[in-house]
Every structure is written in C-alpha cells, then in structure tokens.
Amino acid sequence: MSSTTRPRAYVEHVAIWVQDIQWHIRFFDQVLGMTLREVQGPLDSPSQYWTLGGMQFMAKPDFAEPEGRLGHIGIMCEDLEVAIAEAQSFGVTAMPQGRNWLRLPDGLAVELIQASPGSVAHALSINPRNFS
C-alpha cells in the first residue's frame, strides 16, 4: 500500500446472538424505526434478520451467554483485496465462511465486504452528530 493512499471502510452491520429474535425485531422497529432490510428464513421464525441501520440478529434460542453477545462486525471496504492483503500482516486467521472472514488474535470475528464504487467515501462524508 502506498504511504499516500490509506484504505477506507465503515461498519455496515453488527451481528449479535439473541435468544428471542422476535422481541429484538419488535424493539428495534418500534423504538428506533430500524425496519427490515433482509431476512433468512420465514418472517414469523427467521434464523437471521438484518435491519436498515446496521443490526443483524442471529436467532439462538439455547444461547447461554448474555443477550446480545457479539457474533461479528461487517465492514464495507473500498478495496476488499487490499484490505485482505493488509490484514494478513496483523496475524489474523481465515475463517471457514470465506477468505473475507477474519478472526482477529483477540477472537473478534470480522466480515470484510466489497463496497460499491464511491459508497464508502459517501458514507464517511456524513457526520451524524453535526447539527449545524
């Protein structure tokens, strides 16, 4: 990577394990207006549910850890190939889901996703805390 070119990316979704997926769907919809973006399985009993706004709920009714345990972080990359190549120098481990899935040395799972052209720059140009 050139010293003048820095990779750019943003968090697109955070995936959490939940025991009661319907409760989480209702809460994030009714309280925060985070509606359906994508679903895996039937709507009345999905195995996974993604919201507009970056949440992914993964149903695991027998999950014994605290509710909302982090499953992985999905990150949109301007250049997926550059990000994967750069990640290798940090001692990451490939995961079975694919070469864009990385396990960091501390155990965190990261899914790197190729963004459409210009979308990362656009997303990073938005300052949601700027009220002026």
Rank of each mutant, 00 (worst) to 15 (best):
Glu65Thr: 00
Thr93Gln: 14
Gly118Asn: 12
Gln88Asn: 13
Phe90Ile: 00
Leu70Pro: 01
Phe57Asn: 09
Gly91Leu: 05
Thr51Val: 11
Ala94Asp: 15
Gly33Asp: 02
Gln40Ser: 14
Phe28Gln: 03
Cys77Ile: 01
Gln88Gly: 12
Leu108Thr: 14
Met58Gly: 04
Gly54Ser: 05
Phe57Glu: 13
Glu86Val: 03
Leu102Thr: 06
Pro66Leu: 07
Ala85Gln: 13
Ser116Asn: 09
Pro96Ile: 04
Met76Lys: 13
Ile113Trp: 05
Arg99Trp: 03
Gln114Pro: 03
Leu70Cys: 04
Val110Glu: 03
Ala94Glu: 15
Val31Leu: 04
Ser89Thr: 14
Pro117Arg: 03
Val31Tyr: 00
Gly74Met: 12
Gly98Ser: 09
Glu67Asn: 12
Ser45His: 12
Glu81Met: 11
Ala115Asp: 03
Tyr49Gly: 03
Gln97Phe: 04
Val82Met: 06
Ser89Asp: 12
Asp44Arg: 13
Arg37Glu: 08
Glu81Tyr: 07
Pro117Ala: 12
Pro61Arg: 10
Pro46Met: 10
Ala115Met: 02
Ala85Glu: 14
Ile25Tyr: 09
Phe90Tyr: 14
Gly107Lys: 00
His72Lys: 05
Pro46Trp: 09
Thr51Ala: 09
His72Ser: 07
Ala59Thr: 09
Gly74His: 08
Ala83Arg: 06
Leu102Ser: 04
Lys60His: 13
Gln56Cys: 15
Ser47Phe: 09
Met95Leu: 15
Ser45Trp: 01
Gly107Arg: 00
Phe63Trp: 15
